[in-house]
């Protein structure tokens, strides 16, 4: 029993770097030329189609706008639609069905940074590059294989430990 416990502790220590905050649904937003653009993804990086997007003011928790994501999981919100006179800290909430919710926070500074970038770009004829979502498109094969090896390896270790104990008797 103590050997199994030791094994469990070792496995947890080994997995520790991978213990990232786990969310099935993820939303990502940024400000470009004063317009909020974003993307919702499900597990494996698939787009969260027709997911409900709520924009909430961080200061007073007031609901400013409700919209939905498109077929590609993306959404665009203009500052006029929010009815804000000045840039504010915002919470972007994606609800993609029961038990599938995620949020992203935008600060007022994100809007001013966007304006600065736009001003510095004016006069140049350059293409606007869209920001890429930071979420991976699908679980890497390495993770799948490691998971299977962990499960089967744990079983094999218990089996081996049991057969050794029997051999001693």
């Amino acid at each position: 029993m103590s050997r199994t416990l030791l094994l469990a502790v070792l496995i947890l220590v080994w997995l520790r770097p991978a213990l990232v905050p786990a969310h099935n649904v993820q939303v990502f937003a940024y400000v470009e030329n004063g317009i909020i653009k974003g993307e919702g993804t499900l597990s494996g990086g698939r787009p969260a189609k027709n997911g409900e997007i709520k924009v909430i003011s961080k200061v007073d928790q007031r609901l400013l706008l409700t919209t939905t994501t498109g077929d590609s999981g993306t959404f665009t919100i203009t500052p006029e639609a929010l009815g804000l006179e000045e840039p504010a800290d915002l919470i972007i909430l994606l609800d993609a069905g029961p038990g599938h919710r995620s949020e992203w926070q935008l600060s007022a500074a994100d809007f001013s940074r966007s304006e600065t970038t736009t001003a510095s770009q004016s006069g140049k004829s350059e293409k606007t590059t869209e920001k890429k979502s930071p979420f991976p498109s699908s679980p890497p094969l390495r993770n799948v294989v490691t998971g299977i090896i962990s499960i089967v390896g744990l079983g094999a270790l218990i089996k081996w430990s049991r057969s050794r104990r029997r051999g001693k008797k």
Partner: peptide, 16 residues
């Protein structure tokens, strides 16, 4: 339980 733990760690399904 073990399956879900590893899904949370490796696939980010559910959570800890």
């Amino acid at each position: 339980l073990v399956g879900l733990l590893l899904q949370a760690v490796f696939f980010q399904y559910g959570g800890l």
